[in-house]
Design a protein around this nucleic acid. Structure first.
Lengths: 129, 129
DNA sequence: AGTTGACCTAGAGTTAACTCTAACAGTTAT
DNA sequence: ATAACTGTTAGAGTTAACTCTAGGTCAACT
């Protein structure tokens, strides 16, 4: 059983965020001691790690809530979760190609900038369209 | 001179957004006719295109405000704008590598999902750490 | 006994970038 | 002339995901 400060350290998350997750029911009501202090158990820690990892992987908290629900009933999860992941992959690919384009354009402009005498080519580049 | 509805079509932007940009002084006060109707001139259209393009390129409205200011005084812009673009490039590279990792992990999990019999490997994959 | 320090709460504030609402005015079409 | 359309405003609401504030309790040290 871990007090909130221990979870803060272990999971690299703020106490506010932990309480917030509980408030929005992303986490279940956490067990309390007689003084009302939250005591997180291993399952809670596992859920928090799950949340952080899923978040890093691009899932929103709303999506993570579904994933956590599915985690309790894996038999029924397969199709829906795969759909969720597939949708994410499509979005990520779109995002990736946009970022690559942006990177190329910016790199070009920054390089041009090193050579230019008059004005700033970054500004000019943005003016073209 | 273009009425707001024309700008909406030409620039693929909402009237609300145009008025919002003027309110936050990203755009200058737009010329009005006797009835108080906004009439955008070519310079305004150019600024709006500039904004949209810069936005697509990953600049925030706050950054774009600076770029627009610099656009009026290109002589002094070079260093600062290049710095802005350089910072953006660094952030984009970071973002790109994170997205690539995420894509690889998700692809792997989705592929595993096709083969699994018990539970959902996406869920299990998230549980590992 | 007193003072930190960690913890608690409800609720407000933050951020970016819109988006919507209500209520009104002027323009165009029939 | 009347209905429909397009425009106007100030200001409130939205979204996600926190983050902070004020005011309080409780346990541990000095």
């Amino acid at each position: 059983m871990f007090k909130i400060s221990e979870v803060v350290k272990q999971c690299a998350i703020s106490a506010d965020t932990l309480r917030y997750y509980e408030k929005i029911q992303l986490l279940p009501p956490i067990h309390r001691n007689d003084s009302g202090i939250r005591l997180y158990n291993k399952q809670d820690i596992s859920s928090i790690s799950f949340i952080k990892r899923a978040q890093y992987m691009g899932f929103s908290l709303a999506e993570i809530a579904k994933l956590l629900a599915f985690r309790k009933d894996p038999q029924h999860a397969k199709t829906e979760v795969r759909q969720l992941a597939n949708d994410k992959l499509i979005a990520i690919n779109e995002h990736l190609s946009q970022l690559k384009t942006l990177k190329n354009e910016l790199t070009l402009l920054v390089n041009l900038c090193n050579a230019a005498d008059d004005g700033c080519p970054i500004i000019k580049g943005l003016e073209i369209p």
